[in-house]
């Protein structure tokens, strides 16, 4: 399964990168191929390309604020998750949202 994710938080120095790390570390356990774009204090890093977006099965928006360039995404595939949920139990996030049905 191919997942793309965007993480962002109000200050951009903690949660953005923590959530990205948590997703990347856990993805392989769930047989998920993941690419995570971070929108933090260092700006947009690891930016998702249109190829990534078009080939993704799901799009995870992990943020407590509005993200930059939201209009890139197909609304049907978007799943919004709070940063706290990812930090609290990232496995649960993968189990609920990133399973092939």
């Amino acid at each position: 399964m191919k997942i793309i994710a965007v993480t962002a938080c109000p200050t951009g120095i903690a949660h953005t990168y923590m959530a990205a790390d948590a997703l990347i570390k856990s993805a392989h356990k769930h047989n998920v191929q993941i690419k995570v774009e971070t929108q933090g204090a260092m700006g947009i890093e690891n930016q998702l390309t249109s190829y990534d977006i078009n080939h993704a099965d799901k799009i995870l928006i992990v943020s407590d604020i509005e993200i930059e360039q939201f209009s890139r995404f197909d609304l049907k595939n978007i799943i919004r998750v709070s940063i706290e949920d990812v930090l609290l139990d990232v496995e649960k996030v993968f189990l609920i949202h990133c399973r092939k049905r």
Binding site: I13, A14, H15, Y17, M18, D21, A41, M42
Partner: peptide
């Protein structure tokens, strides 16, 4: 208006916490 080093220093701490 943090410098690149200041942001890295702060993010290192938060990322290491996990």
């Amino acid at each position: 208006k943090p410098t690149h080093e200041q942001i890295l220093t702060a993010t290192n701490l938060s990322r290491n916490l996990l």
